[in-house]
């Protein structure tokens, strides 16, 4: 599919975040893993080593660690705007899990689709948008080419 056919949005933030103060948009994260399975070896390692540090570093995020009899370990991230993202972390090592967690923490929770431009403004022009009447002397009637001065 060409890029024009894919869904897209403008660059935006939730609730003008960062204008007044920055609010971390990740509200809750649950690490779902198995106590025995080979595929969640890295997650178990991460839980032993790094999860407490992560939770201390991000006091605004609630971290839940829930062992379940499942072969596919995953991270369920819930954001302030109500969106929920599930990331599957099968066979990921402990640093990889931490990397993924950091990425999820820094995201805003808005849907991840093509962003049209890397910048956005609500008021694109300070002077006002150009229209055929700008910088024209006041006159009534159809628009004609401006008179040349030298004639």
């Amino acid at each position: 599919m060409t890029s024009r056919g894919t869904p897209s949005r403008f660059l935006q933030s939730v609730l003008q975040n960062g204008v007044g103060r920055y609010v971390c948009q990740l509200k809750r994260i649950s690490l779902i893993f198995s106590k025995k399975a080979q595929s969640s070896l890295g997650v178990r390692e991460f839980i032993e080593e790094g999860v407490v540090d992560y939770a201390k570093k991000n006091p605004s995020t609630v971290v839940y660690v829930s062992p379940q009899a499942s072969r596919i370990p995953k991270i369920v991230a819930e954001y302030l705007n109500g969106s929920v993202r599930e990331e599957i972390i099968t066979n990921k090592t402990s640093p990889q899990v931490l990397e993924l967690l950091t990425k999820l923490t820094n995201q805003s929770g808005l849907d991840i689709i093509r962003i049209r431009k890397p910048f956005h403004t609500d008021s694109p022009s300070i002077q006002g948008q150009w229209h055929p009447f700008t910088n024209r002397p006041p006159s009534i009637g159809p628009i004609r080419p401006q008179k040349q001065d030298n004639k």
Binding site: R21, V23, C24, K27, R28, S30, S60, V62, S66
Partner: peptide, 18 residues
């Protein structure tokens, strides 16, 4: 729903808003 600790959530709410 599963994974809900009210006290921790309230504390995180307070921290989130600084």
């Amino acid at each position: 729903l599963p994974n809900w600790d009210y006290h921790a959530e309230v504390q995180a709410f307070s921290n989130r808003l600084h």
